[in-house]
Design a protein around this nucleic acid. Structure first.
Lengths: 318, 318
DNA sequence: AATTGCATTTTAAGAACAACAAATGCAAAA
DNA sequence: TTTTGCATTTGTTGTTCTTAAAATGCAATT
């Protein structure tokens, strides 16, 4: 039900550090990702400070995580020498973190998706009190605060002047999803034309690899959430190349809401092959610095998706 | 120092109710605004329920406000009959609410602006702890929470994975303001082309009146904050006509940050007359339903402003 | 027939403290 | 000279209870 959270990519190289690194994952699972991303061989030493720096935390939580991973058998501990990788982590359809039962999504995230879902199904009224949610979803005050904060931040509900909340039209209108696409249509082609636009080679490489994975059968085997996430990551990476914090922030925001809308209208995978090709074409153009052309291609890409979505709409209640 | 908060406009008529009504003002001062907006004559009866409905609160806070306004001499109370307007409220440069000492801006808002200012002056480091702010600005935990929530929501600082916060580049980069204009340049012309775009006549009228006020000397007499607010209201009203919650939300967001940036670079009022004319022209076009033309005009309007801003930049530290 | 005035219920914000998680410093080991 | 291991300090979150504010119901009044 609840879509899986974004994997965290490596820092994008924008402005020295990632603008808004998502940290929805547990430290242990982030460490696993690093091991995999760097393709570390068996026996690699994992210094705590190094990991701490890369994950932007202190050594304490890293040490806790290392000790946990040692318990799980992924790492080996040598007293006074540190932790060492037992065996390399192969790229698999399902991540090791899942298998080890890490990353159990927290109550807040879970309820967040349930609320969105209930809302879209028409099970929640336009206006509601905090007490209602608290009771209905069995939340503690802090959890309640957390979900409402997240929802308010994403803009699909807001406090009324007095007590109580209202759902905004973002998740209400029949064509919310279409509206979100029209925003992207205005934004993304423009982002590619920003002055000093630059897409670092390693980002291009990462994006290409992802698309190739999809063409090599990933379209069929990936879960709906994974497909969605890959699409989001591709587009966000491209916008990040603009270096414009306002564009980046906006596109991330709209994507967060889009996740709630889009997996209700995603059943048909036939168009994905086409998408992948368009994505690869975009990467080629950007690599060669042909941003004008890329911008046009992006416009067409989004337009065609928009048309496609418009056809299969009517899934959302009116 | 701290810009005055937005006056609250009447409901925009979009989707039945305003998408995200700002409620930064006290109920008493909102009531004064209503009296003025409706140009009520002396002796007008003010039923509590009516006011409550318009302000989207219950009768309790309205009654408190009415009793306060009666004390201040604005209203007269007749036992068992209710409150009545003593004399009409004339439009003046300074609002009555100010004179009566209502609307004292709260600690959170005040500190919010101080932080932005200190940050722009380079007095705050890229990374900081909550404790630092709490101490430096003398905040209670709740207040601290409030400011940080607001800042995080607007996107110019964010939590690090562990403890602590980082300022994002929105308020950091030398050309943050230019970046924000380029976002608007992508968005606003597109908003005018949204399907079913509709600007209600009373909104057009309100906008026209505001521009005329400016041309009739307001450009000289208004405070910098007032000028800024009027500009923001104009552009937001136009985008609201699109009925697209994503456009509206985005433009509001960028404007909130822009307020922090723009009043440091606003010294020259000579361009404002030109702006007003362009605004009026836009209104004419939209009234006649010539949205294509309006979209182009908007593009030019923003482009010229962008060029102008680009010239006088360098005010922000590098 | 609607509106006030007031009591009552419901809802949310705040304060104080306890519990926890992360950051940091430093001696000991490699 | 770097890294670990661990103790200590610092910073943040969660819990509980108290207080305040808004919503609501209803008899009394116009």
């Amino acid at each position: 039900m609840a879509p899986r959270l974004d994997q965290q990519g490596e820092p994008t190289g924008f402005a020295g550090k990632s603008l808004s690194m998502r940290t929805d994952q547990s430290i242990p699972s982030q460490i696993l990702d690093l091991i995999q991303a760097d393709a570390m061989p068996a026996g690699t030493h994992l210094p705590a400070q190094l990991l701490a720096d890369r994950l932007r935390v202190s050594r304490s939580p890293v040490n806790d995580a290392l000790s946990l991973l040692a318990e799980k058998g992924v790492l080996m501990r040598q007293p006074n020498r540190g932790y060492f990788l037992v065996q390399p982590i192969a790229e698999g359809a399902r991540s090791l973190a899942d298998k080890l039962g890490l990353d159990g999504s927290d109550v807040v995230t879970e309820v967040y998706f349930r609320i969105a879902d209930d809302r879209l199904r028409g099970l929640l009224p336009d206006e509601f009190s905090e007490a209602l949610l608290k009771q209905r979803y069995g939340l503690t005050p802090v959890q309640l605060n957390g979900v409402l904060g997240r929802i308010a931040n994403e803009g699909w509900a807001e406090k009324k002047p007095g007590y109580g909340w209202v759902f905004s039209s973002m998740l209400t209108t029949a064509d919310s999803l279409l509206q979100s696409y029209r925003l992207r249509l205005a934004l993304e082609p423009a982002a590619l034309l920003e002055p000093n636009y630059h897409l670092p080679p390693h980002v291009i490489a990462r994006c290409r690899a992802a698309e190739k994975h999809l063409l090599d059968g990933g379209i069929e085997t990936d879960t709906a959430d994974q497909l969605h996430d890959r699409g989001v990551r591709f587009h966000e990476s491209l916008v990040e190349g603009s270096g414009n914090a306002f564009f980046i922030d906006t596109i991330r925001r709209v994507n967060r809401v889009r996740r709630l809308l889009s997996y209700r209208s995603m059943q048909d995978r036939s168009r994905y092959k086409e998408h992948c090709k368009q994505h690869l074409h975009l990467l080629d153009l950007l690599e060669r610095g042909q941003n004008e052309k890329a911008s046009q291609a992006m416009h067409e890409h989004l337009s065609s998706t928009l048309r496609n979505v418009a056809k299969i709409r009517g899934i959302l209640k009116p």
